[in-house]
């Protein structure tokens, strides 16, 4: 199974930042969602960030919240997410990070959750509502299962805390580019450059940036700021929402967009 280390060191030698698209598993339904994720892989995704839908996603803006509701209504469950991940991995061995909320893990059972999802092919689980202060509730079982750890750093994270977060991170740091929830934005946050620079000075683990990245130019700017990866969620999920009932168009639009971002990232070397 391909690790984050494999992917990021390979990209390091190419001097290119990773393209990391985000999808909510099962949005708008299991089959379409799988088609979209495969299309993203074909369009050049280096890592996948996948969300298991939750009824109350407080870190997410309206776009991803609606995707969560679509996915839950279409019958998505945690167990079906396991099957989804197995199918993605069978298509291509690409690192997968989960991004989700704590209640679903607690409900499934912490130990079993990490074991089952690692077996299915997941590399890390970022729990949006579990901070470093309580990370010990999951780090043991997650580590024992063989998962890497991924944590968030935000523009208001104090530097001492950043250090603590970096020291517990083995996968990559998910850098939140702005104060706020997920969602596409017109302009890229000005905080990005300073934040990435600060983190690169603190740690050798890869630093990826997400929240509000909506265009190839944003992605390029993030890469130029020194980020090792660019995470794009709401922009893609918005394309799903805009093309409900027209899956072919959905696939085409998302493929075009990701191809454009990938090209912009390649040019940043």
């Amino acid at each position: 199974m391909k690790s984050y280390r494999d992917v990021f060191s390979e990209l390091d030698s190419q001097k290119r930042a990773a393209l990391i698209p985000f999808f909510v598993i099962g949005d708008p339904d299991f089959d379409t969602s799988l088609t979209l994720v495969k299309a993203a892989v074909d369009a050049g995704a280096d890592v996948l960030e996948l969300g298991i839908p939750f009824s109350d996603p407080i870190a997410d803006g309206p776009t991803i919240q609606k995707a969560d509701i679509r996915a839950v209504r279409s019958g998505m469950t945690v167990r079906k997410a396991l099957d989804f991940i197995r199918q993605v991995k069978a298509y291509k061995d690409i690192p997968i990070g989960l991004l989700m909320y704590y209640n679903l893990i607690c409900h499934y059972g912490v130990g079993n959750f990490f074991k089952d999802f690692h077996t299915a092919g997941v590399n890390s689980v970022l729990v949006a509502d579990l901070s470093i202060d309580d990370a010990d509730e999951v780090l043991g079982p997650a580590g024992a299962a063989g998962l890497d750890s991924v944590f968030m750093v935000t523009p208001n994270t104090a530097s001492e805390r950043m250090q603590r977060i970096a020291s517990k991170t083995t996968g990559f740091i998910y850098t939140v580019s702005l104060l706020g929830v997920t969602g596409s934005r017109e302009a890229l946050s000005e905080a990005v450059e300073g934040l990435v620079g600060q983190l690169k000075g603190l740690t050798s683990v890869p630093v990826c940036v997400g929240f509000g990245i909506s265009t190839p130019a944003h992605a390029r700017a993030v890469a130029d700021a020194g980020a090792d990866g660019v995470i794009i969620g709401s922009k893609i999920v918005g394309m799903i929402e805009a093309n409900l009932g027209a899956p072919a168009k959905m696939v085409a639009e998302i493929t075009d967009f990701l191809t454009g971002v990938r090209t912009a990232l390649a040019a940043s070397g």
């Binding site: 509502d129 202060d133 309580d134 935000t154 994270t157 805390r161 104060l179």
Partner: peptide
Amino acid sequence: MKHRGRYGDYGGYYVPEVLIPVL
């Protein structure tokens, strides 16, 4: 945080990182 805000097993502060400094 100075305190954990726990009542037995309950309570705590399960929030996104961005809210930690605010709390």
